[in-house]
Structures are given as C-alpha cells and as structure tokens.
Amino acid sequence: MDKPINQGAWLLVLPVLLIVAFSAIVPLMTVVNYSVQDTFGNNQFFWNGIGWYQELLDPTTDLGGRFFDALWRNLLFSFLILAIEVPLGIAVALSMPRDGWRVAATLVVMALPLLIPWNVVGTIWQIFAREDIGLLGWVVNRLGIPYNYTADPLSAWVTIVVMDVWHWTSLVALLCYAGLRSIPDAFYQAARIDGASQWAIFRNIQLPKMHRVLLIAVLLRFMDSFMIYTEPFVVTGGGPGNSTTFVSIDLVKLALGQFDLGKAAALSIVYNLIILAVCWVFYTVMTRMDAQRN
C-alpha cells in the first residue's frame, strides 16, 4: 500500500520562518543595501557601488587601515586566549574529582564565572585592575611592576586576556571533564595492567576521548573571542589609543559614533563572511573526523 505523502507539516515551520525573516534575513538584506550606498540621514541614500568595499580592503586608506589593524588585534587576541585556555582547561579537567560530594561542589564553583553577564565581568575587572583602588592593580604596582591599563597598551592587553581566561577557562574545563567522564574504568584498568605511564594514559586514552569536545571548545572560544565586544569595551573602551580596539568595537564607533552607515555595513558584511567561513571550516573538520571514526 502506498503511503500518502502529506506536506502539511511544513506549515508548522512557518512561524519560525517568519521570526527568522524578521530577526535575521530582513536586517541582513538591509545591511547589504546600506553597504553599497552612502547616507547623511533622513532616509536619503546615494549609490556608491563597491566603493566602501574597495576602501575597506585597501590598507592604505583610513578605513582599510583601521579594519586590518583591528582584524590583526582580533586574531592575536583569539590566538592568545586559545593558547592559554585550552591547555589550562585540560589541566583543570584532569585535576577535577571523579566521584563523591566534591564533584558537585567543583562543578558549581567552575560554573560561577560562566553565569556572570559580560558587562558585569567587565565592570568587576575594571575596578579590580585599577592601580589606585583595585586589589590587582594596587598589588602589582606595589610589587614594583609598572601596571596601568588606562595608559599602557601592554597592561591593557594583559588585563583583557587574563579577564577572558578567568571568565571562560571553566567552559573548556567543563567540556573536557564531560569528555573524560565518558571513559569507562576498564580503559584505565587495562592501562594499569600494561604498566602505562600517566603521560601514556593521557596521550592514548584521555586525549582521543576529549578530541571532539575539545574541537567544540576551540570553536566556541574562537567565535566568542573573535566577536568579543562588551568586556574590552567596558574595561578599556578600545584604548589606550586604539590598542584594544577590536573589529566589533570599531564597527560600533563607525556606525553609531560617526554614523557612517555605508562603511559600517561593508565592514559588517566582511566580518560576517570571515566568521561564517571559520565556522564552516570547523564544521567540515568535525564532520570529517566523525566520518573517519565511523
């Protein structure tokens, strides 16, 4: 007997489609429209073609220079926090208790930084790192190390990197911990019988089991750090000078500060494309790894 085909269920998807259209597709279309025009407000637009894109991709122009500088800062920031948070997260996960009441206690403590809103994290660190009234800033200066995140670019970078590590390392640790928990005890018993060293256990049992969650952690942390806005904006405001101005901060300055909607739209599109491409590469790598395993 032939099964009747009923496509009526597609109608149930309509509300989602409408919401996505209004929250994502229509704004995205508008940004594309803005990116090829110039405006002085009052809903009057003037055709500019690919002008903004040309300016944006030419490092010798003001807009291009700003964009590439901010992009390199973004990439450096993402690289730094991944280089610190991933090994640190693995180390924390390995040292977390595996049973008893301490598991719950550790999980609660680890989850705390993740529950704090971004702007609150920024405010906490802005005060914590101040050289006059902040505990961290005051102690570091008392130790004889010059530290002032409002005047010295290196101090500002150290502050936002340490802040991000404090905020997000527990996410990597919790993901790794979930991976570690999925390893049956029999694996460890077999390793003990074979007389495997701690390093051999880590290299051959724990790391392969954490592989997938680690990739997810790297993807999440990369995307988040690449799109970071709130915390550095609250702590340094992109300064001193432009030393911590990331693409997102520059975008807001362009769009809302200078009201250069055309330039900001072109920058948004390119920024969006970079993020989309990185996401796709990560997705492809993960899918490939899954396929190879199966």
Binding site: M29, T30, N33, V36, Q37, T39, N43, W47
Partner: peptide, 15 residues
C-alpha cells in the same frame, strides 16, 4: 520599506 534602502542592483542580487 524605504528604511531598507533598496536599490535595483541589490534587489537583483537577492532575487
């Protein structure tokens, strides 16, 4: 839809 600042070129692109 004036606020969306449509042009025929971007219209063709999306079509």
């Amino acid at each position: 839809v004036a606020w969306m600042a449509w042009t025929w070129q971007t219209g063709v692109f999306f079509v």
